[in-house]
Design a protein around this nucleic acid. Structure first.
Lengths: 339, 339
DNA sequence: CTGAAAGCGCTAACAA
DNA sequence: TTGTTAGCGCTTTCAG
């Protein structure tokens, strides 16, 4: 069947195109009877206004982009869920783009997004991203960009983050209070703001307790599982190995637990563990894992909400938005003094 | 700055719009020098062809939709990753829609997708979906639909699945071989084809080994964590409790492990476990969990590949595609005879 | 209350 | 090799 468009619909009804268009929009200009007729016919003929035609005319796509490094990750997938939920209620469509932690790809994606396909962008930057000119150039096209979780400092855009410094501080303090004296921080990309803030919190907590910050306990991890396993194994084979470990990201958990198991190290008696993580399985690991759990779903919802306000409210200074949603410390077996 | 469009670009170059358009498409009709000039100017003026205008004209969105019940799930997030990867290389854009296991929502989303926003759809149906007329109605608009993992039977569309029957069979057999005589199958929605096939495999394996299929060992689980915890707890408190359990979906793992722990049941000596799962943490659980791991990433890639072929190749009978990618049985501690 | 007409930015048939 | 022109399907002024 030939798809019905507004023209064929108008012809069918013996009305003009503009009347039909207005009737479908429930315009006050159109009589009740006409609206009824139009709606009925539209329904019968299964009329769907073409999204691209209407988008082109109104210069509005009703679509947003989510640009993130990874999707197979419990933080990002929960964030997407929050974003999608808000978008669905607002009648927006959600495009997903993965950067795979590549700065080049991130640039290319943003560049491509300047073509009117989206009204706004939600983004968490790649671990290679240090400069923000690609973001500026999107803003120059009047496309709002909201950064969430992995932000870049030094630019005026809305940012939704957790209290990374405080969380790093809290995690460290928690281990100190549970008797750890040699606490290691597992660091990922030093270009990542979240990594550095968590690390800064770690250092501050040590300093506040008059403990030295030792470089050898700041363990630089890599990107893939095998590398991390080897790095962690080496660290734990050291004669003066850590008695407390802070994992700054979720994907270090599996290699860390494996190393501990393979080296027959006992946790928590020999080494106490805490990690940033949104994994549901934290509570069934052995030992159950103490986590800093980020409000991923809420972050996604907050970011989307701000974006839609930016798109719909006039005179809303969205760039000034700077929301911090606190993370939660979930104490479990891995970090507490075993009896 | 006023966004440059093809008209302003043409004016700038003293060329006609169509010449510019063709030059940008590297048409054979245009001289080398002109192409050079156009490309240079386009670059300098930061010209981006408007996606909606071109889409409207060509009746092609270069966009696909992924319609799934959930994203915070390691199977679906991996599948998305596969889909996104292929889409990026093909220059397609990926819209995500979540049905939250609701048949009504799934219908509404498909209905909305008939408006020319997408060229094709990849979908895994909700657990409430039993009828397929909403899919047919999309196909009637000449929008290809590829079903992956959670398919509906009895309609001619491309389907990418794993060997669910065989996996259910293998899982059951594996437990039988490891000495289990009272094997429970944790069932989810009985409307789901994957659930039923896995269950059928379970029954067949029992029958082949001359074991009875007992209804009380087919445990109907619910949708939320708490419900499942209670259901599993009750099952494991039974005097004649199972000595082997097959989890048909990943999200039953956490409640299951918790029940076992809370009731101080020993696995694998008292009860052996195996579950469908793509969780990386399976290998650090206690006991490490034997899994049927689905090729989620490959399924995503295969589904996307077929869709793009359907969109780009003439005379390709994509509806006949019916791909089965086998799952893998990863034997770990939870299911093997403990010494 | 209804309709005519312009045009969003692009592509593609056809003309020159 | 380049240009003219007619739309894609819709929204929106403006006129009636």
């Amino acid at each position: 069947m030939s798809h019905t468009n507004i023209r064929s619909l108008a012809k069918e009804l013996n009305l003009s195109i503009s009347t039909v268009s207005k009737a479908l929009k429930d315009s006050y200009e159109i009589s009740y009877e006409t609206k009824e007729r139009v709606l009925k016919a539209a329904n019968e003929l299964n009329y769907k206004p073409n999204a691209f035609a209407s988008g082109l005319r109104r210069k509005k796509s009703n679509t947003i982009a989510v640009v993130i490094p990874e999707v197979a990750d419990s933080f990002f997938s929960l964030a997407i869920k929050g974003i999608e939920e808000i978008s669905q209620t607002k009648g927006y469509h959600v495009l997903i783009y993965l950067t795979y932690e590549s700065w080049k790809k991130e640039q290319a994606i943003l560049e491509d997004l300047k073509n009117g396909r989206v009204d706004g962008i939600l983004m968490s930057v790649s671990s290679e991203t240090s400069c923000s000119k690609h973001i500026k150039s999107v803003l120059d096209e009047d496309i709002p960009v909201i950064l969430f979780d992995r932000i870049v400092e030094g630019m005026e855009v809305a940012k939704i983050i957790t209290d990374d410094f405080e969380s790093g501080y809290k995690a460290t303090n928690h281990l100190i209070e549970n008797g750890c004296t040699k606490i290691a921080f597992l660091s990922v990309s030093t270009l990542l703001d979240i990594n550095n803030k968590r690390l800064a919190g770690y250092k501050k907590a040590l300093t506040d307790k008059k403990k030295p910050v030792e470089e050898r306990f700041i363990i630089q991890c890599g990107n893939d599982f095998k590398t991390n396993y080897e790095i962690l194994k080496e660290a734990m084979l050291h004669s003066d190995k850590p008695d407390g470990i802070i994992g700054s990201v979720e994907n270090l958990i599996t290699p860390l637990y494996l190393v501990i198991k393979d080296l027959c190290i006992l946790s928590p008696s020999e080494v106490k563990l805490i990690s940033f993580s949104n994994l549901q399985t934290a509570e069934i690991l052995n030992p159950t894992l103490t986590t800093i759990t980020q409000p991923a779903f809420e972050i996604g919802k907050a970011a989307a909400t701000i974006l839609f306000n930016a798109l719909e409210k006039r005179n809303y200074n969205w760039k000034k938005e700077n929301i911090v949603i606190p993370s939660e410390l979930c104490t479990r077996e891995s970090s507490i003094i075993s009896k």
